[in-house]
Design a protein around this nucleic acid. Structure first.
Length: 288
DNA sequence: AATTCTTCCAACCGCCAAGTT
DNA sequence: AAACTTGGCGGTTGGAAGAAT
């Protein structure tokens, strides 16, 4: 038995929503709440499929939707998050109150993608020209564009067990230390054992403090001080199944992740290992 | 003024993972 | 364990609106 056919095959309405349909949907959800999308249209008296109702509500009718132009601050945040997360629009939108994944995606495709592509292509072109002044410009532009692929690749990491940072001079190390302290103080750590952060960065520390990996990654200050210009992930097949092992690399800094088969990647040259910095609150949690 | 081209974005589509039976 | 349902996601499309010719 397969899926039930969607609206197109049942003679339901398609295309742009009318004001009347919007009113019916809004009234119904305000009365009965969200969910049960499959049955909603029939109960509400709409000639739409549930999926269409859900999309209309989430992307347009919800009361907390922020409409209007994306601000400069929002744009900068989108760019930073995209650098880290790639095309994971729902995650990015989750960090922009009132914005939907569809809106962020559209904004990226119509504004930022082109803008940044132009910039990076030009940078790459300049670099290539430095190396070979006689360059073939059209080829170079093409090559630059092919380097545009997002740096973040979707992964299936289930937990992060180690963060490795190279030894650095005091000031910078203290700065990272402070940021990590702030994460704990702000309640971003999931661990109740976070009452003391003394010795947090000590080389021999054996603390088992849990961190939300998302918050850690998204703390731009930490990424910046770590010299990170994005997360690079190398996925590869493990045996015959499709699970992937994952190595997130911040330049010389390594964040080591386990895949579902508990494989780890370890960077032996790292000077400092922070054990269990980023294991998840609940081991069932999956970061993907 | 008419036509063509370009841009933008709401909506659709197919796929997937998790939950349920 | 398998079949099925549901909700959610990201990629793509189509049409409206505006710009260019």
């Amino acid at each position: 038995m397969g899926r039930r056919p969607c609206c197109a095959k049942l003679g339901l309405n398609r295309g742009a929503w009318t004001a009347r349909e919007d009113r019916i949907l809004t009234t119904y959800i305000n009365t009965h709440g969200e969910g049960k999308w499959r049955d909603l249209p029939q109960k509400a008296g709409l000639k739409r499929c549930g999926k269409s109702c859900r999309l209309r509500w989430l992307n347009y009718l919800r009361p907390d939707i922020k409409r209007g132009n994306i601000s400069k601050e929002e744009e900068e945040l989108i760019i930073r998050l995209h650098k880290l997360l790639g095309n994971r629009w729902s995650l990015i939108a989750g960090r922009l109150p009132g914005r939907t994944d569809n809106e962020v995606k559209n904004y990226w495709n119509t504004n930022l993608g082109k803008k940044l592509q132009g910039k990076t292509a030009q940078n790459q072109l300049n670099k290539t020209k430095e190396k070979s002044p006689e360059g073939k410009s059209s080829v170079e532009v093409h090559q630059a564009k092919t380097l545009e692929t997002p740096r973040a690749i979707r992964t299936r990491a289930v937990r992060c067990t180690k963060v490795i940072l190279p030894q650095q001079e005091g000031n910078q190390m203290n700065y990272i230390d402070n940021i990590l302290h702030e994460l704990v103080r702000d309640g971003k750590s999931s661990s109740s054992s976070a009452s003391s952060t003394q010795g947090f960065m000590d080389e021999d520390s054996d603390f088992l403090m849990d961190f939300d990996i998302g918050d850690l990654f998204l703390n731009s200050d930490l990424l910046e001080v770590a010299g990170c210009d994005g997360i690079q992930a190398a996925d590869h097949e493990c045996g015959n199944n499709s699970s992937s092992s994952t190595n997130y690399s911040f330049s010389d800094h390594k964040i080591l992740l386990e895949d579902s088969s508990n494989k780890e990647i370890f960077e032996p040259n790292a000077a400092l290992e922070l054990k269990k910095l980023c294991s998840f609150l609940d081991s069932d949690d999956e970061w993907n």
